[in-house]
Computed example of a mutant assay.
Amino acid sequence: MAQSKEDPFLDDVEQAEEEEQAAMTEEDAPESVEDQIESLRAERDAFQDKFMRALADAENARKRAQRERTEAENYGGSKLARDVLPVYDNLKRAVETVTDEQRKEAAALIEGVELTMRELVNVFSKHGIQVIDPQVGDKFDPKQHEAMFEAPVPGTKVGEIIQVSAQGFMLYDRILRPAQVGVSSFTG
């Protein structure tokens, strides 16, 4: 059943719409549009803020991953390096204890030990390991040295290295093993 144009219900709806439009003044219409624009701007700003925060979080995660990857590359082998240091120490002791007579008798063997030690130092250098080689008379540095003992030695100053027991090692900017030293406690 089609409704005719003279349907009272449709006439009431149309009349209500006309009254509503007539009730709106020219000032009312822009306010509602301005309110809508302001609402959209606030929503846009909120989305932009969320986007910028997400972008910053992603950048921070990228930097953190890069830093962790670099640390893993540089310091991942530190346990192995620490375990190899006694090999270096033993080779160094072996070379240092050889007398001139022993050097003449077993020249090839001693030369082989020295070559092995040099190659080990080259491998250390290739992987960022540097020797900390304090000398007697140097100032004690607790960041690089470990005091094994203190002794009052005349002619020295307090905190001066008086003996080097073992060299230390750094892996890039981190201590693998501090140099083991004796320190003067002489105050005279």
Rank of each mutant, 00 (worst) to 15 (best):
R93L: 15
K143E: 05
Q130P: 07
V136I: 08
L40F: 06
H145L: 12
R64F: 05
D100K: 11
A94H: 11
T25W: 01
F186K: 02
Q180W: 02
S4R: 00
M148W: 04
N60H: 08
A42E: 09
A147V: 11
K5A: 02
T70P: 01
E105N: 15
A29T: 09
Q66N: 03
S125V: 04
M170I: 01
H127W: 06
V98Q: 12
D12Q: 03
T97M: 14
Q130A: 14
R118K: 15
P30Y: 06
K50M: 11
L120P: 05
V33G: 05
E101F: 06
S184G: 09
V131Y: 01
R177C: 03
G76L: 06
L176W: 00
Y75K: 01
V136F: 06
V183E: 12
D7R: 00
A22Y: 10
K79L: 08
G182M: 06
D138S: 06
Q102N: 13
A179G: 04
M52P: 00
V158W: 11
L80K: 08
D28L: 11
A29K: 12
I162W: 04
S39M: 09
S32C: 10
K126F: 07
R69F: 02
T116S: 15
V136S: 12
H127V: 10
E105Q: 15
N74R: 12
K92I: 04
L109A: 15
L55I: 00
E105H: 13
L91H: 12
L109F: 15
V84S: 14
N90Y: 12
A23Y: 05
V121R: 15
T156Y: 07
R177M: 08
P154D: 11
D141I: 09
P152E: 13
E96A: 15
Y75L: 07
G188W: 03
R103F: 14
L80N: 09
E26R: 10
Q163I: 01
A54G: 04
Q15T: 05
D45M: 08
P86L: 14
I162Y: 09
D49C: 01
V33R: 13
K50I: 03
Q180A: 11
Q167A: 10
N60V: 01
E59F: 02
Y172E: 06
D45A: 07
E20A: 14
M117L: 15
I175K: 07
R93G: 13
F186T: 04
D133W: 05
E43P: 04
N122H: 14
D35P: 00
V33E: 09
V164L: 01
F186D: 11
K143G: 02
K50A: 14
S165T: 06
A46Y: 07
K139I: 10
G77I: 06
A56Q: 03
D83W: 07
G112F: 10
T187F: 01
R62Y: 00
E20M: 14
D173W: 02
Q15Y: 06
D7A: 05
P152H: 07
E34Y: 05
G112K: 09
S4P: 00
P154Q: 08
H127G: 10
D49K: 03
D11E: 05
D173E: 13
K157Q: 14
L40S: 10
A61T: 02
S4N: 00
T70M: 10
Q21E: 14
P30T: 03
I37R: 09
I161N: 09
K126A: 12
